[in-house]
Simulated assay, not measured.
Amino acid sequence: MIRLLKMCATRSRSDHSAVKRPRGRPRKTLEERNEGLGRQAIIKAAAKLFRCHGFNGTSTRDIACAVGMHSGSLFYHFKSKDALLYEVMQEGLRSAVARQMIVLLAEHDAATTLRQLIRSHFDTLLGPNSDFMQAVLYESRSLNTRQRNVIAKLQGDYEAAWTPVLQELSLTGCLQAEVPLARHLLFGALNWSVQWFDAKNGASLDDLTDAVMALMIRKKSR
């Protein structure tokens, strides 16, 4: 009997040790994953509608309908349409910064880096996910003061990252204008492209990039 009890105890310890303890964070439930996907779908749909009809011209019912939910369900994810706009704008800037970091972390000369920054910015403004940046450019007046200040800070930091590149080009005599002026002119010209650019007219984003570089960079004389 004693021998049998010892065998059972040994087996119990062995079975217990075979059960692995979960490591790290527990996996998200299916409901939690669906909730995250639903939130992203709302943000994407809102960005598109804000671009097409403006913030004031888009209702929460319009956004809810675009993602196939009841209008009241929208407030499960966002407490107001203003909060949703704020998230759309942050998403646009997060995407822009991520693109920019890829360029800045690469090891290139200043002229090549500027070209890639310009091309990246055109992608952000005119590429497949450009709805988000449209809100950044044209809907900040619909934010409250705190939100507007946060967006302005993020946008300012994004643009400031171009300054060292422009300074290096200026030191080598390649930049056509003083650095602060060149930066303002660059972003003014690039951002305005959303008002007139149409890929159907034959110009590509590479063509736009080449044109901007020709305007900003002075060719060295041989």
Rank of each mutant, 00 (worst) to 15 (best):
M1R: 11
K6P: 01
S14T: 14
D15I: 15
D15A: 14
K20D: 12
R25C: 01
R27A: 10
K28M: 13
T29E: 14
L30W: 12
N34Q: 15
N34E: 15
E35Q: 09
G36N: 07
G38S: 12
R39M: 11
Q40C: 08
A41P: 00
I42S: 07
K44N: 04
K44D: 15
A45Y: 10
A47Q: 00
K48G: 05
C52A: 14
C52G: 05
H53L: 05
V67E: 11
G68Y: 04
M69L: 04
S71R: 05
S71H: 11
S71K: 03
G72Y: 02
H77V: 11
K79M: 13
S80A: 13
D82L: 11
D82F: 06
A83E: 14
L85T: 07
E87F: 00
V88A: 03
V88P: 00
Q90Y: 03
Q90R: 02
S95I: 03
V97I: 07
V97Y: 02
R99T: 14
Q100E: 13
M101I: 06
I102S: 02
I102K: 01
V103K: 03
D109F: 04
D109N: 14
A111P: 02
T113K: 11
R115P: 09
R119N: 12
D123K: 09
T124P: 05
P128F: 13
N129D: 15
N129M: 10
Q134L: 02
T145L: 10
R146I: 09
V150W: 00
I151L: 05
K153G: 00
K153N: 08
D157S: 06
W162T: 04
T163D: 15
T163W: 09
P164S: 12
E168R: 11
L169N: 10
L169H: 12
T172C: 06
L175C: 10
L175Y: 02
Q176F: 07
Q176L: 10
Q176I: 13
A177G: 00
E178V: 15
V179F: 12
L181D: 09
A182E: 11
A182L: 11
L185R: 04
L190W: 03
N191M: 14
W192Y: 13
S193F: 11
Q195C: 15
D198G: 05
A199H: 10
K200L: 07
D207K: 01
D210I: 14
V212C: 06
M213G: 09
M213S: 09
M213Q: 08
A214K: 05
L215F: 13
M216W: 01
R218K: 14
R218F: 12
K219G: 14
